[in-house]
Measured scan of single mutants.
Amino acid sequence: SEEKKKAKERLERLGASSELARELLDRANGNAEKAERLLRKLL
């Protein structure tokens, strides 16, 4: 979806690899905010 694509791009801008961004979104069930929080914990 367009929303998921935007979320993935945002995670990548924050420093996630394409693969990591995809994994985070999967774990967050597509929830962009939750995926971002997970990423911030990792960085």
Rank of each mutant, 00 (worst) to 15 (best):
S1Q: 12
E2W: 10
E2M: 11
E2L: 13
E2G: 09
E2D: 13
E3Q: 11
E3H: 10
K4A: 14
K4W: 15
K5V: 11
K5Y: 12
K6V: 09
K6G: 12
K6Y: 09
A7R: 05
A7W: 09
K8W: 15
E9C: 01
R10V: 06
R10Y: 10
R10N: 07
R10H: 09
L11I: 03
L11K: 01
L11C: 02
L11E: 01
E12W: 03
E12N: 03
E12I: 14
L14Y: 04
L14I: 06
L14R: 02
G15R: 02
G15A: 04
A16M: 03
A16P: 00
A16F: 03
S17I: 03
S18L: 07
S18G: 08
E19F: 05
L20T: 04
L20A: 02
L20F: 06
A21G: 02
A21T: 03
A21E: 01
A21C: 04
R22M: 15
R22P: 00
E23L: 14
E23N: 07
L24P: 00
L24H: 01
L25K: 00
L25F: 05
L25G: 00
D26I: 13
D26F: 12
D26T: 09
D26V: 11
R27V: 09
A28G: 02
N29F: 11
G30L: 04
N31V: 06
N31L: 06
N31I: 06
N31M: 04
N31G: 02
N31E: 04
A32Q: 08
A32G: 08
A32D: 04
A32Y: 15
E33D: 12
K34L: 15
A35W: 02
A35N: 00
A35M: 03
E36V: 11
E36G: 03
R37G: 09
R37V: 11
L38D: 06
L38H: 04
L39K: 01
L39R: 01
L39P: 00
L39A: 00
R40Q: 11
R40S: 08
K41R: 13
K41F: 13
K41S: 09
L42N: 02
L42K: 05
L42E: 04
L43F: 09
L43S: 05
